[in-house]
């Protein structure tokens, strides 16, 4: 890997979120709580979402441990989720995933906000899973919320 790739991976904004994560902590009264781990590397997070009646995120927090990429990514994600509907949140996850797979267009999308700082991760294939850990939790959370809303799965 080149110097440029490395400095784009470890941007100040990422290191700053790693050192001072936003929205870190438990969320009493969370609508949904998802634990997600990467068994290969041991990184893990617990994502808490509080949704209102219209599936709008009132609050998002996490606790977890892991590398700078996984922890900064989930920190930035929680900032971005506040006020979004579940559909908007899932669209954000899809957009972020496109950026991780190298889409330049996605990397220019202002909807991603600070998360765009993570675009350098796409040059490090073994680290993409780290950046996606929080979004994997988000997708699992959406699935659970909706399966609950549909009532117990049946016939």
């Amino acid at each position: 890997m080149t110097e440029i790739a490395l400095s784009s991976l470890y941007q100040q904004l990422i290191l700053e979120h790693y050192r001072k994560p936003r929205n870190k902590g438990v969320l009493p009264g969370a609508t949904v709580e998802v634990h997600m781990a990467n068994p290969v590397c041991g990184d893990e997070i617990r994502l808490h979402l509080q949704l209102d009646g219209e599936e709008r995120v009132q609050a998002a927090t996490f606790i977890g441990q892991g590398c700078s990429i996984s922890q900064a990514s989930v920190s930035m994600m929680t900032v971005r989720l506040k006020g979004k509907t579940l559909d908007e949140a899932l669209a954000l996850a899809a957009r972020f995933t496109e950026m991780m797979h190298g889409s330049r267009e996605a990397a220019r999308d202002r909807k991603l906000g600070e998360l765009r700082a993570l675009q350098g991760v796409s040059k490090f294939p073994v680290r993409i899973k780290c950046a996606l850990l929080g979004f994997d939790a988000l997708q699992e959370a959406a699935k659970r919320v909706r399966s609950q809303a549909d009532g117990p799965a049946g016939g």
Binding site: M1, E3, L6, Y10, D43, C67, S68
Partner: peptide, 13 residues
């Protein structure tokens, strides 16, 4: 201060 994976990535560079 640095996680083991970040150490490995920077060493690899």
């Amino acid at each position: 201060r640095a996680h083991a994976h970040d150490v490995a990535t920077i060493l690899d560079a």
